[in-house]
Write a protein that binds this DNA or RNA. Structure first.
Length: 491
RNA sequence: GGCGCAUUCGUCUAGCCUGGUCCAGGACGCCGCCCUCUCAAGGCGGUAACAGGGGUUCAAAUCCCCUAUGCGCUACCA
């Protein structure tokens, strides 16, 4: 197996969501890519909460993010709950670290105090835009003299700290997109420390990535331009930038960024809708990634084994529910009857014995695309009293050709097979076909009444499962009960 | 507006780096057929794409340039 940069042994990666909402599918995809690289390289996965926006962050969302990740099997080696040597792992708890770095940049003249108020800024910006000029911070406070600065400080005016963007070209080395070059003059002097002393996003990210010894930054394409600012800070701090990988964003069917108006967007939504975590992961991985051949179905373990950064494509990724559904079905097929039963047991009739439950589940499983589909399966037939018929079933029975003889044939054939099992069940159905043929009947003449008489319903699973569930004798009894019901109706 | 990224069937993609084996392969969806006691599932087949224009070359989906379109960034949000 060849190793490439992205698969360096010991890659330290981080997933850094801000807990301002439930774990979004797009974020989950980012987390997945990070996790695959960490696990595939024997490295470390770091979970870092970017909760500097105190108003929008909440503990509830933190919980949802971690629960969702764990549900998907995306675990981490360092994080707010498990700790680690590079903590704390909540940015809100790292504020003094950031201000220390900000002060250092200030002392080294790579940053400067800015006393402009948001109102003044807005005013100047509007003026510029009004004249059709592109607005970029005008560096008003960069030109302040020491006296002016002293006066402003004496007045008690709050100040923010801005990064002084140097001149020259900046290169972001991206594993997916190659060398992205941007002229620093395109970037304005952004704020690294707010006037209330809290770090801005850019400073916090870079300081964290340095101090947490992150080797690979894998995140969404929306950060590609931000990476230019980050490289600038890395340089100013004398640190080597990590490897970057900016993957495409997850879009909705209309090509716009996947959002609430497209319907369900959070991992927990999909969990509730009955999707299997391994199917979700498989699907998310397949969006943008291909093993290079025609394989599409992967277990989480296979994904870790097969995933490689060079198999990731740079283009857009549109979420397609149809394909997710198909994959979910494929992954459900890999489950045993017993495993599947465990997953849907809450929807099953408690009066059923475990072995009966498994037969019932086995009989309807191919009608399911998600676990939630269990609710719409015709399981009621298994708890319906013998001889009870739906109106539709009764109607079908009455108009069925040679019905009397057919029902008797059913009973006699069933009773020829005292033992139970799938092989017996299949044999019984074969016998019925043969008997029907010998009488010059279509198979339907006897098989259709079989279903109707045994289940009292026109819809239900394959006949073999009915035999398996009630046994040949039990089925014969139910046919008899139906005969009685029909006779009573005649009277 | 400026800057950046992207562009192969409706969707996800293989192929592109190392031009010819590609009148472009696979999958989902869709359509049809088969199977069939119901509903499905399954099997088989079909539909459908190199964004446009210029180059380079004997030869371009593959290399270069331009245009178009989409997305992103351009906050004391992250």
């Amino acid at each position: 197996m060849t190793r490439r940069d992205g698969d360096n042994p010991g890659a330290r990666v981080r997933f850094a969501p801000s807990p301002t909402g439930r774990l979004h599918l797009g974020s989950a995809r980012t987390a997945l890519f990070n996790w695959l690289v960490a696990r595939g390289s024997g490295g470390d996965m770091i979970l870092r909460l970017e909760d500097t926006d105190r108003e929008r962050s909440s503990a509830e969302f933190e919980r949802d993010i971690m629960d969702s990740m764990l549900w998907m099997g995306l675990d981490w080696d360092e994080g707010p709950d498990v700790g680690g040597e590079h903590g704390p792992y909540r940015q809100s708890e790292r504020m003094d670290i950031y201000s220390g770095y900000a002060r250092r940049l200030l002392e080294e003249d790579r940053a400067y105090r800015c006393y402009c108020t948001p109102e003044e800024l807005k005013e100047r910006k509007n003026a510029a835009v009004g004249e059709g000029r592109a607005w970029r911070y005008d560096r008003k406070c960069l030109g302040l003299t020491d006296e002016e600065r002293a006066r402003l400080t004496a007045e008690g005016r709050p100040y923010a700290i801005r990064f002084r963007v140097p001149e020259g070209e900046v290169t972001v080395n991206d594993m997916l997109r190659g060398e992205v070059k941007v002229n620093a003059s395109e970037i304005d002097d952004f704020i690294i420390l707010r006037s209330d002393g809290r770090a801005g996003f850019h400073l916090a990210v870079v300081v964290d990535d340095i101090t947490m010894e992150v080797t690979h930054v894998i995140r969404g394409d929306d950060h590609l331009t931000n990476a230019v600012r980050h490289v600038l800070i890395f340089r100013a701090l004398g640190a080597a930038p990590p490897m970057f990988l900016h993957h495409s964003l997850l879009m909705g069917p209309d090509g716009a960024k996947l959002s609430k108006r497209h319907g369900a967007t959070s991992v927990s939504d999909y969990r509730e809708m009955g999707y299997l975590p391994q199917a979700l992961i498989n699907y998310l991985a397949l969006l943008s990634w291909s093993p290079g051949d025609d394989r599409e179905i992967f277990t989480p373990g296979e994904l870790v084994e097969e995933f490689s950064i060079e198999g990731v494509s740079a283009g857009k990724a549109i979420f397609d529910m149809d394909k997710l559904n198909w994959l979910n079905r494929q992954h459900m097929k890999m489950l045993s009857d017993s495993e599947l039963t465990d997953l849907v047991i809450d929807h099953l009739d408690r009066s059923l014995a475990r072995d009966k439950m498994e037969i019932a589940v086995a009989s309807v499983r191919n009608g399911m695309e998600t676990l939630a589909d269990i609710a719409s399966q015709p399981l009621d037939i298994y708890v319906r009293p013998a001889g009870e018929l739906s109106d539709k079933a009764a109607g079908e029975l009455v108009k069925s050709p040679d019905i009397e003889e057919a029902l008797d044939l059913l009973i006699s054939t069933l009773e020829k097979h005292p033992s139970n099992g799938m092989a017996t069940a299949e044999r019984i159905v074969d016998d019925l076909r043969r008997e029907a043929a010998e009488r010059g009947w279509k198979a339907k003449t006897v098989l259709w009444p079989f279903r109707l008489a045994v289940t009292g319903s026109t819809v239900g699973p394959d006949l073999t499962y009915l035999i398996l569930f009630w046994g040949p004798g039990g089925c014969a009894d139910r046919v008899r009960a139906t005969k009685r019901t029909l006779e009573e109706r005649d009277e």
